[in-house]
């Protein structure tokens, strides 16, 4: 259960990136899983080669990943904003392949360990029959804090209101004087930074990162976003946790080999009964 919440936290953080971008541009950024992977590598690089402690490496890697996300939008999505969705999807897959291969060129195709570089020593606490490690606690606390911060930004700040306005109708948002291109960049930046933090947490938790990690995580986080209702921010958070918990419980009580199957089975079941996702809204326009 604790494991599930921990993993779910990372799914939720990645899912937020999918859902925010979808909310504004109605596109699925299939390269988002690779952004997550790159974020993890950036952080590892900071710790391993630049010798930074984790509390310095985290924000620096997050900023670097955010910048990468913004550049990615500029190059791969902005020029084809008016193109149809198939074009956008092909462009996204191109970015995904590019980033995966770039990571292999830079860091090789092998698996890299985090232990020894992060400066975090694992300690385990036992409460009756619940076992908790300091990494798990940190993981859960950090992901919940980030989600609360995001919730605050989106709902209470001027730029958050502008984001919600842009996601509802780009043209009308422009007529309010909102520089929608800047809002879109901001959205990609935030989503990428969250994915980077997820990448670092996953890397430290499993003590491993490799160039293709983005595929499985990206796909599952995307499924989590759909599960919660794509376009909905609370939906992505909930979807991430539900997916993490279901997958971990299924893996430990039924069979570990079917781990991924449980994750996608819950997606299928939910979509049969609620096609728009758990918190998704059917889009109704009152005329």
């Amino acid at each position: 259960m604790i494991n599930g919440i921990t993993v779910g936290g990372s799914y939720a953080l990645i899912a937020l990136g999918y859902t925010m971008v979808y909310g504004i541009l109605r596109i699925v950024n299939f390269a988002h899983g690779d952004v997550f992977m790159m974020g993890s590598f950036f952080g590892l690089f900071c710790m391993q080669f630049l010798g930074m402690p984790y509390y310095v490496a985290f924000p620096i890697a997050a900023i670097a990943t955010a910048i990468m996300g913004i550049i990615m939008e500029r190059i791969a999505y902005r020029p084809i904003r008016t193109a149809d969705s198939l074009t956008v999807m092909i462009s996204a897959l191109g970015v995904s392949t590019f980033l995966g291969n770039l990571a292999m060129v830079l860091w090789g195709s092998g698996t890299h360990a985090f232990s020894g570089f992060s400066g975090i020593t694992v300690s385990v606490y036992k409460f009756d029959n619940v076992v908790l490690s300091n990494i798990q606690i940190g993981f859960i606390v950090l992901s919940v804090l980030l989600m609360m911060a995001l919730y605050f930004i989106v709902n209470k700040t001027k730029i958050g209101i502008a984001m919600r306005a842009t996601s509802h109708n780009i043209k009308t948002a422009k007529l309010m004087g909102i520089n929608t291109d800047r809002i879109i960049s901001f959205t990609f930046g935030i989503g990428s930074a969250l994915a980077c933090v997820a990448g670092l947490l996953v890397g430290i938790y499993y003590d491993a990162v490799y160039p293709l990690i983005g595929y499985s995580y990206g796909l599952k986080a995307f499924a989590a976003a759909v599960l919660g209702g794509i376009g909905s921010i609370p939906g992505a958070m909930l979807g991430g946790f539900v997916m993490g918990i279901v997958e971990t419980l299924g893996a430990s009580y039924i069979s570990a080999g079917y781990r991924d199957a449980f994750a996608f089975a819950i997606l299928i079941i939910v979509l049969i009964f609620r096609p728009a996702g758990i918190l998704g809204k059917k889009e109704i326009d009152k005329v």
Binding site: K158, I161, A165, N169, M176, G177
Partner: peptide, 22 residues
């Protein structure tokens, strides 16, 4: 705009605040 173009997912006050965005 034609057909009003208010943001249905935002409150009345938030809609007004966007008018003064700049």
């Amino acid at each position: 705009q034609e057909g009003r173009g208010v943001f249905p997912n935002l409150s009345v006050a938030e809609n007004l605040s966007l008018g003064a965005y700049l």
